[in-house]
Amino acid sequence: MNKEKLLFNIMTYEEMMSLRKAYNYGVRNFKTRQANTIYMKYRKQQMKNKVAL
């Protein structure tokens, strides 16, 4: 059983990127805004990890 990891216990990376793409094309609804917010949190987390190394 290969389960994808949920980001912030909300959605998978694939779902997030798909919804974020729609957000970048101008689709503004709850799910796309949520995906964009999660993406920004994810990026900040990744940047912190790189600096900490």
Rank of each mutant, 00 (worst) to 15 (best):
residue 48 K to D: 08
residue 24 N to E: 02
residue 3 K to F: 12
residue 30 F to C: 12
residue 3 K to E: 14
residue 35 A to V: 07
residue 34 Q to D: 00
residue 23 Y to Q: 05
residue 32 T to L: 08
residue 36 N to V: 03
residue 19 L to I: 02
residue 50 K to Y: 12
residue 53 L to S: 09
residue 12 T to W: 01
residue 45 Q to A: 08
residue 24 N to P: 02
residue 38 I to N: 02
residue 29 N to L: 08
residue 21 K to D: 00
residue 15 E to Y: 02
residue 26 G to N: 06
residue 24 N to K: 08
residue 38 I to M: 10
residue 7 L to P: 11
residue 50 K to T: 11
residue 5 K to V: 10
residue 1 M to V: 13
residue 22 A to T: 07
residue 9 N to A: 07
residue 53 L to P: 06
residue 25 Y to V: 13
residue 20 R to P: 00
residue 40 M to A: 12
residue 10 I to V: 01
residue 16 M to E: 03
residue 26 G to F: 15
residue 36 N to T: 03
residue 13 Y to C: 10
residue 43 R to G: 01
residue 6 L to E: 12
residue 11 M to N: 03
residue 18 S to C: 04
residue 23 Y to F: 05
residue 8 F to A: 09
residue 37 T to Q: 08
residue 28 R to G: 05
residue 24 N to Q: 02
residue 44 K to I: 07
residue 11 M to A: 04
residue 7 L to V: 12
residue 30 F to P: 10
residue 34 Q to I: 00
residue 26 G to H: 08
residue 18 S to F: 11
residue 35 A to G: 05
residue 48 K to E: 07
residue 20 R to F: 02
residue 4 E to S: 11
residue 23 Y to D: 01
residue 35 A to W: 05
residue 43 R to D: 01
residue 31 K to C: 00
residue 43 R to A: 12
residue 46 Q to C: 09
residue 27 V to I: 14
residue 33 R to M: 13
residue 45 Q to N: 09
residue 34 Q to T: 05
residue 30 F to T: 15
residue 42 Y to Q: 06
residue 40 M to R: 10
residue 53 L to E: 13
residue 18 S to H: 13
residue 7 L to G: 14
residue 41 K to P: 00
residue 49 N to R: 08
residue 40 M to S: 12
residue 42 Y to M: 12
residue 32 T to S: 08
residue 13 Y to W: 06
residue 18 S to K: 09
residue 35 A to S: 07
residue 13 Y to E: 09
residue 40 M to P: 04
residue 28 R to A: 12
residue 50 K to F: 14
residue 13 Y to D: 10
residue 40 M to F: 07
residue 2 N to D: 09
residue 21 K to F: 06
residue 10 I to E: 09
residue 1 M to G: 15
residue 9 N to P: 02
residue 1 M to H: 14
residue 44 K to D: 00
residue 42 Y to V: 06
residue 35 A to D: 01
residue 2 N to H: 12
residue 41 K to G: 03
residue 33 R to Q: 13
residue 6 L to K: 07
residue 18 S to A: 11
residue 35 A to Y: 11
residue 48 K to I: 11
residue 36 N to D: 05
residue 13 Y to N: 10
